[in-house]
């Protein structure tokens, strides 16, 4: 199953990269969100997806708890970054009046 999930994560990365390369600011932000999912799945997978019980003491043979703790931290941080970039995109649009990244370029001679 590890191979399958890794390939899935690879598909997510591909789509995320494609979105990050687009001209629209919304697509870029969605790309980062998808990239975050891919990262979480990879962290989960590289530790192994062996069968076991949830990491609760007394439930038998629990799965590895450490990657879960790492992902939990990462989810929260990812959310914070997404929130800030969303508000930034909103404010940019308010001030500049465009959501096209190409138009946000400075003077060519700067």
């Amino acid at each position: 199953m590890e191979t399958l999930v890794t390939i899935l994560a690879g598909v997510l990365v591909t789509v995320a990269t494609y979105l990050l390369l687009s001209k629209n600011i919304i697509r870029v932000i969605i790309g980062t969100a998808i990239l975050t999912h891919a990262a979480h799945l990879i962290i989960m997978t590289v530790a192994g997806l062996k069968t076991g019980t949830a990491p609760i003491v007394g439930e038998g043979n629990p799965v590895d708890p450490l990657p879960q703790a790492l992902i939990l931290t990462s989810i929260v941080i990812g959310f914070a970054v997404t929130a800030v970039s969303l508000v930034l995109a909103y404010r940019t649009y308010q001030e500049v009046g465009t959501d096209k990244l190409d138009k946000l370029k400075g003077d060519p001679d700067e």
Binding site: G10, V13, T14, A38
Partner: peptide, 9 residues
């Protein structure tokens, strides 16, 4: 994107 996804996989 495909190259990047492949490499990550």
């Amino acid at each position: 994107s495909i190259g990047f996804g492949l490499m990550i996989t």
